[in-house]
Design a protein around this nucleic acid. Structure first.
Lengths: 148, 148
DNA sequence: TATGAATTCCCAGTTTTTCCCACTTCCGCA
DNA sequence: TGCGGAAGTGGGAAAAACTGGGAATTCATA
């Protein structure tokens, strides 16, 4: 169960130093590779491979002649890259994924249960503002009676 | 299982340098030829021949008097060309296929499970924007309860 | 059959990537 | 407050990959 937020700077080579306290839960002590992929909200998703596999399988099972599914498959499978942390616990983020998420240096690293989200810091703050400033946030169906 | 995105430039001769990490999976170490063909979304598809054969057979088996199938057959079979990577792992893309997909120089190379898609970079970004920009992405039927 | 053009194949320079090491900073503990 | 250890940060060297060009061969045309 991943949670918590960390503000992190990428170095000049595009490497992201994963916070120490999440390394072991994420990679099971270095034995498990991870997968980086893209999300429609223009952030990146980070999964341990075992958690990613069933999701990829589900996406791959979509009917490929139905045009509505193709953009999702292109996003989720098309951007997915399997990788490992380097000797210093850093994650190399490819230029393609950085470009997609608008990431250059400052990023936000957010636990989201079964995965982490990686946001460009500025974009993260914008999306926070949108939730807070819009008067009352729009509640999706099924959440009207949600109680904190 | 092909996945991942790479931005690649064609050289002046129309050659596309296939990324090293996908060469072996794609050609089984150079022993297997590949097939390039066209997709209605104006991108190209790249298959290892063994994966392509059953698909071509399936398309060829469509009833030819049903008008709805003919455009598919013309695209998938009509544009298909069998080829090989050159000694430097490059793929020569014919002028016909380049014209069809609007490819001149900058392309995006996208893994899609059993095949790769090759997009003109600009066209690729346009189709990404269509998924993200509409506020909330459009969920096709059957995907409403999909959980990442 | 000869000439020209286009294509294919191959080689080598240059750039990029990857892996590893070392230094600095921060934190805990004595 | 000083010391030890761990973590974050930056850099460098070796290896691999990309890019471009050039030569040889094939094909077409006169």
């Amino acid at each position: 169960m991943f949670q918590g937020a960390s503000q992190i700077n990428l170095d000049a080579k595009g490497r992201l130093a994963v916070p120490t306290r999440v390394r072991d839960p994420l990679t099971q002590g270095g034995t498990v590779p991870v997968v980086l992929t893209a999300h429609p909200d223009k952030c990146l998703l980070l999964y341990p491979v075992p958690a990613w596999e069933p999701i990829r399988a589900k996406v791959m099972s979509f009917p490929s002649l139905d045009a509505a599914f193709n953009p999702w498959k292109r996003l989720l499978v098309g951007f997915a890259e399997e990788t490992q942390l380097d000797g210093s616990g850093r994650l190399l983020i490819s230029p393609e994924l950085r470009a997609f998420a608008g990431i250059d240096k400052r990023v936000m690293f957010i636990g989201q249960g079964s995965y982490y989200e990686i946001w460009d810091l500025e974009r993260w703050q914008q999306q926070l503002d949108r939730l807070s400033s819009g008067g009352s946030p729009v509640l999706p169906p099924g959440m009207e009676n949600f109680s904190l």
